[in-house]
Simulated assay, not measured.
Amino acid sequence: MGSVGVQIVCVALCVFGLIGVIVCCAVPLWKVSSFTGSNIVTAQSTQEGLWTSCVVQSTGQQQCKNYDSLLVLPSDLQAARAMTIISCMLSSLSLLILFCGADFTTCIENEDAKPKISLVAGVGMLLAGLLVIIAVSWSANSVVTDFNNPLVQASNKKELGACIFVGWGAGVLLLLAGGLICCFSRPKSGSSGGAAKYYSNSSAPSANKNYV
């Protein structure tokens, strides 16, 4: 019963982690304008994401534009695109595999195969969590490096957007779910002992016949 509860918790963690990764992939809040130093013009701010760049006016109006080419993007955003998409795919696939191998479902009747299937799902969640953490950490390092670079103009400096923190949270949830699944998805070790007892009992009558 304990393993069933852990699997349900892991499913919930994976769902929230998957939602967080999708938000990071879709919302253009990876890099936002920084109003520091001599940059006192706050009438508009820029927001950059994986797919679009937006300009937000002080009146609330927002205009977004897709990037003209993949080649004009910095290397951190190019890698983040691939890693977040792969993380979304791994999270979704791991969630489906976990449902198939969970103890509270009857998709698979073989009880010996369920721990192995759940273990595969746990490894997939771990990989998905690592990918999204690497993506947002790389982008965060690029933002911090440019912010502390004195050669970069104040008007061009960016700060960490909300998606960076959402990505860290989603990665932690996926790592936690994958770690719990890997810890609790162990093959049952009682089958070999039962077989040994069976053979020992069956060999007892034959031994008695030899003595008779």
Rank of each mutant, 00 (worst) to 15 (best):
W168M: 12
G169I: 09
S185G: 06
A140T: 01
V166R: 01
L174H: 07
R186W: 13
Q153E: 12
G179Y: 02
K188S: 15
E159F: 03
W138M: 15
V136H: 08
L151G: 01
G178I: 08
G167Y: 00
G167W: 01
L176A: 14
V143F: 06
G171A: 04
V143L: 05
L174G: 01
V152N: 02
R186L: 13
C182N: 10
S185V: 03
A140G: 03
L175A: 03
V172I: 15
V166N: 01
S155F: 07
P150T: 08
I164Q: 03
G194P: 01
E159V: 09
K158Q: 10
V172L: 15
L180Y: 08
S191V: 14
G179N: 07
A162F: 10
L174T: 04
V136I: 12
R186A: 11
I134L: 14
G190M: 11
G161D: 10
D146I: 00
L175C: 08
W168C: 10
P150Y: 05
L160D: 04
L175T: 01
C182W: 02
G178D: 06
C183W: 11
V166D: 01
F184H: 10
A170K: 06
N149Y: 04
P187R: 11
A177C: 04
G169M: 07
A162M: 10
L175S: 02
C183E: 04
G178E: 02
F165R: 09
S191I: 13
C182S: 13
F147C: 00
S139W: 00
L180G: 05
V144F: 06
A177T: 04
I181W: 03
F147N: 09
I164E: 02
S155R: 11
S192R: 15
S139E: 12
G171Q: 02
N156S: 15
G190P: 00
P150N: 05
Q153A: 14
L151T: 09
G178V: 04
F184L: 09
S137K: 08
K158F: 07
D146E: 14
L173K: 09
G167E: 01
A177N: 07
S189F: 07
S142L: 13
S192I: 15
V136Y: 06
E159Q: 12
S185W: 06
P150C: 07
P187T: 07
A162E: 07
G167Q: 00
L151E: 12
V152H: 01
G190I: 12
N156Y: 13
D146K: 13
E159C: 04
C163V: 04
A154S: 12
S155H: 05
P150L: 08
G194Y: 11
N141Q: 15
F184M: 11
F165D: 07
L151D: 11
N148V: 02
S192P: 03
